[in-house]
Nucleic acid binder design. Structure first.
Lengths: 264, 264
DNA sequence: CGATTTGTTCTAATATTTGGAACGGCTTTC
DNA sequence: GAAAGCCGTTCCAAATATTAGAACAAATCG
């Protein structure tokens, strides 16, 4: 996995430690926050260093104290804000794609996801659900593995055989569901099929009982920069419905791709 | 103005510079990215330092290169990721407020917003709309000025007269709509009224033809940390309706405030 | 009520960051 | 087409900022 990540030649260690702390804070799920001592122990950084780092991060709103008389820390709204600025700088921003995703959601009454490729994972950047009461496991901002999802396989299509092999050698493969593709060879064949078809199908490869149909959005270089998926329970995703989804998605993705300068 | 910000006793300067760079990157609106030299000039940090810092930030996905062969930088999806984790661990999260906001939205068939105070602006953290087809200009994660909105004025209520004056001297005032309050004196009177009433009204101060009613959520220190607003076209926001909104919001905000330890 | 653990402060030793200079590649300009 | 300028990148030694650990008071636990 390391070979895929960007490794700075001249890392700023102080900053790296601060980002490690931020990452550790992010993994906290409670609203109680995390104490300085806990961070110190977990990351093997001196208490005083953690203290000073959190103090500085707090000045920028990236972390906050957890509340009442708490001395524990949470991620702060300044980080929320900064995070929400990210999509605006990326190429698809001007395309006004959300109404299109909503139309797709309304038409098929299934969950519509949009994802981008980042650091050998898919980041869900937009999610439209048919019924607000039905919540699936994934949420905006979360990451999904490439090899087990329809969106992810679209991104894998841009990998050379060597890159794909490297990917499979470096990541930890988990059989999430009945049909998860777990070997390089099978994936190679699958990707060939996807490239030929122009769409990807996740047939119970990530969640048992769930099928996901996805198509790519490409930029002017032909690279798949994003993708849209429609997913639902297998029994509702009939062949006929999938065919209709394919047609609709095809139109939307072609339009967004041309927005990015993709021809043909 | 400064007195509001948290000033670390022992700042980690290296980290502070990195966060300055991140903030500068955030202000960029284009999809072209920002060059190392530009950042270096703008923030008076040596080119090599900017380079090394960006390299480290890139390793964590907080920034990205703008394109395959580009040497300019954009905010990265790792930051998006981190930002989306913020609401999940915030104190109000445990209050499970979204259903309450939805109830408000359903009851009045108007847009319900929730905002928090951060860095002298309001950050919209949740937005519930009665009809998905009607879109207002604001979106989750975006910032609104304090002086022109109902939510913002709630936060201004915590300012001392000196702080308020400093605020008005340091920000750029734009008359967004017919009734935008643009002077310190008028705002001072308005805030006194709001403090007395316990709610804030934006009567066509941000968008012409739009009225917004807001009430504060306070934490254990009595500080207004968040607020909820209901907004709609003036003709629909009758006195009677506003009275009903006031009652409903009052209940919800009191409940959420007590959740944060606010007494009385 | 004693024992532990917490956050915070301080200091001196250390390792880190720093900015400037140098380099090669690229674009612009004359 | 040559030269000048700007770019990102690398390197280095000087100097600064960070670090870990100890010390302390306050809070928590048994």
């Amino acid at each position: 996995m390391e070979s895929f990540e960007h490794i700075p030649k001249y890392p700023v260690q102080t900053l790296a430690k601060a980002l490690d702390i931020l990452q550790y804070l992010k993994e906290n799920t409670s609203t109680e926050g995390v104490s300085i001592s806990e961070i110190s122990r977990a990351l093997s950084i001196g208490k005083s260093g953690v203290h000073r780092t959190l103090d500085t991060l707090m000045a920028y709103g990236f972390v906050e104290k957890a509340g009442a008389n708490s001395t524990s820390y949470l991620l702060g709204w300044g980080l929320f804000d900064a995070g929400n600025a990210v999509p605006k700088q990326h190429t698809l921003n001007g395309a006004n794609y959300i109404p299109q995703l909503e139309k797709l959601c309304n038409r098929f009454s299934e969950t519509v996801n949009m994802g981008v490729f980042n650091n050998y994972e898919t980041v869900i950047i937009c999610k439209i659900e048919p019924n607000i009461k039905l919540r699936t496991n994934t949420q905006v901002g979360e990451r999904e593995p490439l090899y087990a999802t329809a969106l992810g396989k679209l991104f894998l299509c841009d990998f050379t055989p060597e890159e794909l092999q490297g990917y499979f050698e470096n990541i930890e493969i988990s059989p999430f569901a009945a049909n998860t593709i777990t070997t390089y060879e099978k994936m190679k064949a699958e990707l060939a099929k996807i490239r030929h078809q122009g769409y990807a199908l996740d047939n119970e490869e990530y969640f048992d009982g769930m099928i996901c149909f996805a198509m790519p959005i490409k930029d002017f270089t032909g690279k798949t920069v994003s993708g849209i998926s429609v997913s639902g329970p297998s029994r509702r995703m009939t062949a006929e419905k999938l065919e209709n989804i394919k047609e609709s998605l095809s139109t939307v993705c072609a339009q967004l791709s041309s927005f990015l300068g993709y021809n043909n």
